[in-house]
Amino acid sequence: MNPLLQLKEVNTHIHDFHILEGISIQVPREGVTVLLGRNGAGKTTTLRTILGFHPPSSGEIRFDGELINGWPPFRIGSLGIGYVPEDRGIFGGLTVYENLKVAARDGVREMERRLEKVFELFPDLKRATRQQAGTLSGGQQQMLALARILVSKNRLLLIDEPSSGLAPIIVDRVAEAISELKKELPILLVEQNYNMAKQIGDNYYIIDQGRCVHEGHMQDLEKEPELKQRYLGVSV
């Protein structure tokens, strides 16, 4: 089956800097694809290029076969690509419910219909619907960021560093939540926390200096200590 999302030889410049130097990746229609690599390798830029925030200077980005290069971000979002940035992108001055409402692309009625299931997954949020989102804990904000994706019909989820800045016990809960989500949605995940990536990832790409240097199945990466040491800084 052809992949849901495909990047072919994508180059991205931000101002004068050549950040992505010909990245090619494929995201299948199910499971979690993980982008691994050190800080500054170009993982976040890859996500932001897909989303249209940094349009590529050359190369092809196809979503379900359709060329989406150069589309404005709102049109790419409308395709059903949900995004959770590393800083969660929560609207702190809005209530939890208002955050969900902004994200309700398919209308408030559809959102209400989906909320019951969303709250089953994130019971903390149900108790806090009227609370200002800026006053939630880091873990709760991560839950809200994921919940915002789930109130509309999405086809792919891009998540950037969900474990970043969270206590280990909260990281476990976020990992559990993402494991639940992956049953329903294909996910492209950027993660530096190798243990989390190992736990929920199916396929991986290692990015280094704006290029893909390695790819494969997550379980096979376990057998490549040298690769892990060299590109991920994971000690053997």
Partner: peptide, 21 residues
């Protein structure tokens, strides 16, 4: 929803776009 979107846009216009707005 439009009004709430305006308030959200004051905080983070990029994120608003990712919701297809």
């Amino acid at each position: 929803r439009l009004g709430i979107t305006i308030r959200a846009g004051v905080e983070n216009p990029e994120m608003v776009q990712s919701f297809g707005i």
